[in-house]
Amino acid sequence: MPVFKTPFNGYSVKFSPFYEHRLAVGTAQNFGILGNGRLHILDLNPSQPISQFASFDTSDGVYDVAWSESHDSLVLAAVADGSIKLYDLSLPPTSNPIRSLHEHTRETHSIDYNPTRPDSFLSSSWDDTVKLWTIDRPTSVRTFKEHAYCVYSSSWNPRHADVFASASGDCTVRVWDVREPGSTMIIPGHEFEILSVDWNKYDDCILATGSVDKSIKIWDVRNYRVPMSVLNGHGYAVRKVKFSPHRGSLLVSCSYDMSVCMWDYMVEDALVGRYDHHTEFAVGVDMSVLVEGLMASTGWDELVYVWQHGTDPRAQ
């Protein structure tokens, strides 16, 4: 399957929810420490290399990207200077970004578009807050500030349009309802920083967390004293976890041990597949909503891989 070489170090990859051949990749120069960033919009071509549909430069690294669920041409980028930039692919590059939302005082680390009520999105930042934005307003609607340390990731519940979870460096996951003043649940999930959280798409009470302690834990929010399952197998911190859009118990993770792993938390031998194609930290992974089993990953080796689950990503 095809490979795309980016000029900067990859940080995030997301499949478009509208087109099965399109994906967005966020990259940052110098490993995201310092320098510019770039947002790539890539097109998959059958039996041809990946082509670039568009690319946009930013003044700081792009840490995360998200596709709009309401407009097929809108892409959001979380930029390391704390801003969120909105791009419209149907407009010429000179008029992009069409919006720059700058309220976070430190780096914006992740962004998640609401899939059930597609007019809002969340941004999580190292200024310890999560902000709720709507597409029609120039300022954030609400700020969620309870975490005591950087918030690394937040994720909407796929069935409840008002519920989301946030993962933070204060070693907790908090579940929020946008109608409530405070968090509705605090899960002290790991002994070390939690870098990623995602909801099960088929069971709205189950979420997965990935942490610096190298483990992935599966939680049931109705009984969050103990995890449902602990998935061990990564050699270093787990950077991102993502549930499969097609099978309820399947999830994919990427880690600083440079591997991308596929897990099934319901079975005894949870590690279903392991891909060691990256030669540097694997930091971005996604599964296509439209094509079952199609996966994409990116990492600091400046490569974007797209492959079908079960095949070798490096096989051309």
Partner: peptide
Amino acid sequence: APFKPPSSGSTSDIVE
């Protein structure tokens, strides 16, 4: 689920 049923309307209206 231990969540309140989803409200209808736009997100900004709901939050307000």
